[in-house]
């Protein structure tokens, strides 16, 4: 056996990755080759050192961060699923729903639009009503964005 092959086998011996006869052969070689015997000792010490300095994270904050993200991901996957359901609705039905909805908003100011449902009456206090329609607000917004 070439010396370099033998040293490679010693690395396998350290890991317990040699089978029976090969272990015996390698051990026999160690008794007659001081170079390989030294190499074996060093590899064993190195292995012990690597095992000793195997760090662990002191707390579980990283695992918690991961779980929060997974949870967020499964929630948004839920939305994606709903959206894919929406895709199965025939396009004419969507147009009809939109037409009724937009028709309902026609001529109404922004506050009136938002106030169509009783539950949103408290928005009055949050949004100043300048008498502008939703279209006015969108045009204003578009202009201010273009002006940047």
């Amino acid at each position: 056996m070439r010396h370099i092959d033998c040293q490679k086998r010693i690395s396998l011996l350290v890991d317990g990755s040699l089978d029976g006869p090969a272990v015996r052969e390698a051990l026999d070689h160690l008794t007659e080759c001081p170079d390989c015997a030294r190499a074996y000792e060093k590899m064993v010490s190195l292995n012990n050192a690597l095992t000793n300095v195997k760090p662990s994270l002191a707390d579980s904050s990283l695992a918690s961060k991961v779980k929060v993200r997974i949870s967020g991901e499964s929630n948004s996957a839920g939305y994606a699923w709903n959206f894919s359901l929406l895709k199965q609705v025939p396009i004419w039905a969507l147009i009809a729903i939109l037409a009724v909805g937009v028709g309902d908003m026609a001529g109404k100011t922004l506050t009136e639009t938002l106030n169509m449902h009783d539950t949103s009456h408290n928005l009055e206090n949050l949004i100043q009503d300048n008498g502008e329609s939703l279209t006015d607000v969108l045009i204003d917004f578009g202009q201010s964005e273009n002006g940047r």
Partner: peptide
């Protein structure tokens, strides 16, 4: 089957190794 809690246990189990 959709249980993120079971996946969470896998996270607890392997995070240190994965981090290293």
């Amino acid at each position: 089957g959709g249980s993120e809690h079971h996946f969470g246990e896998l996270v607890d189990r392997h995070t240190t190794m994965v981090y290293r």
